[in-house]
Design a binder for these strands. Structure first.
Length: 512
RNA sequence: GGGCGCGUAGCUCAAUGGCAGAGCAGCGGCCUUUUAAGCCGUUUGUUGAGGGUUCGAGUCCCUCCGCGCUCACCA
């Protein structure tokens, strides 16, 4: 059972009084005719007319009370709906003293109210509803976190209070949304982003598909999975860590361009750019290679930026990011050479590369047990990544950290792969997909060996995927992107939690 | 998982080891065009939880819980 605070007890008392007076504090229906924005637009348009009769704008509005000022025989209140705020004006002339008193006595900040009347402009010019009738739509028991503060006695110190606790904002997103309109705006932009990505891919003749979230095997990435169990089938199942292997099966089935936007689940650490479940976009494009995917990517992201922010240049922290194509392209070997002074191509084994790193960068601390690919990855994240602020494609990756990508012709150690970096972090990852089933089987086996050597869970070998490949898979380019990360960039938020409505948090204790 | 930091009223925050406070919100008044309304009066606390040191703990120590930052992990 909830423990009620003193403030809540007062409001519960009001609910009882309302019921005693025969008033339902939670009536079933509302009769709104306009949103706040609609009625303001209509009133402004009517004002232009020369016909006085057309100037009267009647409306029934509904929303949450966010401010109220009782002044004896008149009262003002502001209500908020999803479109904005609008002022209500209550006066005894129209309503009578009892009704105005009733409003002042029984209505609290946070309550939902419906009010009917005629629009007018106050002395100070604010477009306001002159209330002729009103009713309670829903009583609020728990006060919303107050969202303002005051002038101090010395007259100089001014402070605004708002709901700021990151924990409460994330845990009680409903309260955060209710009191922080800019949070609502963030999530509208997120929705616009996903819509834009969909529109772009639809317009490029990609087919949107849905593949299993609950999978008998997991694959397509190197993360640890969440496990569960199907009782009736008596088998363990996994939440997917990527869509890749299912989407590529569809290419075998002659669906030439497919994409999916959905949730991936990775049982890994949580950080400002990692949440255990996150939204991924992947597409696969038959007869294309990674260079074509690169061009489509920069067009798609620029289109999304334009749709969401009306511009391809976006402010992100101290940076102004420019998504306009073409993005900068940096060959990985070259980029690492320029930022770390090490040319990994000259060091063909892990031991040699490790020595070179210790020699050139004595302060760096790579793991001595790393494979050569891991060492290159270390150089990338340590030296090159932080320099990649403007959208940049980093391309040509070491083969042994890219088991699903195709080698560059004539260069078996390097694969046709790129990652898009923005603001120093990875946004997307793509390659010319490996479509040779025999090579793929070999890579899976190598990967299994790596994992076994690591004494971690062995990566499962997906026999059904290999069977699909053996029917023949067209050459194709594939792409994956963290949609939450793109959302962060476009709304200028520096934590993934700020673009997730309900980010993962430890279970809250509610006590006995 | 490691390191650092934080947790005080509904919200934002104070309080040298010495009476737990302020503003807003709330409650009671006054006020017929206010809008961060104003004026008068007034209530509100398991200081995250538990233990310890001390004449005395919000403050110092220990354990636990939660959150933040960071490192590790993370193709």
């Amino acid at each position: 059972m909830a423990e009620y605070s003193a403030l809540e007890k007062i409001r519960l008392q009001k609910i009882e009084e309302l019921r005693a007076e025969g008033i339902d504090p939670y009536p079933t229906r509302a009769e709104r005719t306009h949103t706040s924005a609609q009625v303001i637009a209509e009133f402004e348009a009517a004002g232009i007319s020369t016909d006085p009769a057309a100037n009267e704008v009647k409306a029934t509005l509904a929303g949450r009370i966010r401010a109220s000022r009782a002044m004896g025989k008149v009262s003002f209140a502001h209500i908020e709906d999803s479109a904005g705020r609008i002022q209500l004006f209550f006066r005894i002339n129209e309503l009578g003293k009892d009704r105005v008193d009733f409003f002042n006595r029984m209505f609290d900040l946070g309550d939902f109210i419906q009010a009917s009347g005629v629009m007018f402009r106050t002395k100070t010019g604010e477009i306001t509803l002159h209330v002729h009738d009103f009713k309670l739509l829903a009583k609020s028991i728990t006060p919303l976190p107050a969202d303002k503060d005051v002038t101090q006695e010395d007259g100089t110190v001014i402070r605004y209070a708002a709901l700021e606790s990151p924990e409460i904002r994330a845990r009680q997103r409903y309260a955060d949304l209710a009191v922080n309109p800019e949070v609502r705006e963030t999530f509208r932009k997120r929705a616009a982003l996903i819509k834009a990505l969909r529109t772009f891919l639809d317009d490029h003749e990609f087919l949107e598909v849905e593949t299993p979230i609950l999978q008998p095997l997991y694959g397509g990435a190197a993360a640890r999975p969440f496990m569960t169990h199907h009782n009736e089938l008596e088998q363990d199942m996994y939440l997917r860590i990527s869509f890749e292997l299912y989407l590529k099966r569809l290419l075998v089935g002659n669906l030439e361009r497919v994409y999916e936007i959905g949730r991936d689940f990775r049982n890994e650490g949580v950080s400002f750019k990692h949440n255990p479940e996150f939204t991924q976009l992947e597409f696969y494009w038959a007869y294309a290679d990674y260079l074509q995917v690169m061009e489509l990517t920069e067009q798609m992201v620029a289109y999304a930026a334009e749709e969401v922010t009306d511009s391809t240049t976006v402010k992100f922290g101290e940076h102004v990011l420019d998504f306009k194509p073409p993005w900068k392209r940096v060959e990985m070997r070259q980029g690492i050479l320029e930022t770390s002074g090490i040319d990994f191509a000259e060091h063909k084994t892990a031991e040699a590369l490790f020595k070179a790193i210790k020699h050139k960068q004595p302060k760096a601390a790579p793991d001595p047990k790393s494979t050569r690919g891991k060492l290159i990855d270390f150089l990338l994240s340590e030296f090159l990544e932080p320099t990649l602020i403007q959208p940049t494609f980093l391309y040509n990756y070491p083969r042994d950290i890219s088991p699903l990508a195709k080698s560059i012709p004539g260069d078996p150690l390097t694969v046709e792969r790129f990652e898009g970096y923005v603001a120093g972090f990875e946004l997307c990852n793509a390659f010319t997909e490996l479509n040779d089933p025999l090579d793929q089987e070999q890579r899976f086996l190598e990967m299994g060996r790596d994992y076994a050597a690591d004494d971690k869970e062995k990566h499962p070998l997906d026999e059904d995927y290999l069977r699909a490949m053996r029917y023949g898979m067209p050459p194709n380019g594939g792409f994956g992107m963290g949609v939450d990360r793109l959302a962060m960039l476009l709304v200028n938020k520096h934590s993934i939690r700020d673009v997730l409505l309900f980010p993962a948090l430890r279970q809250e204790e509610f006590g006995e």
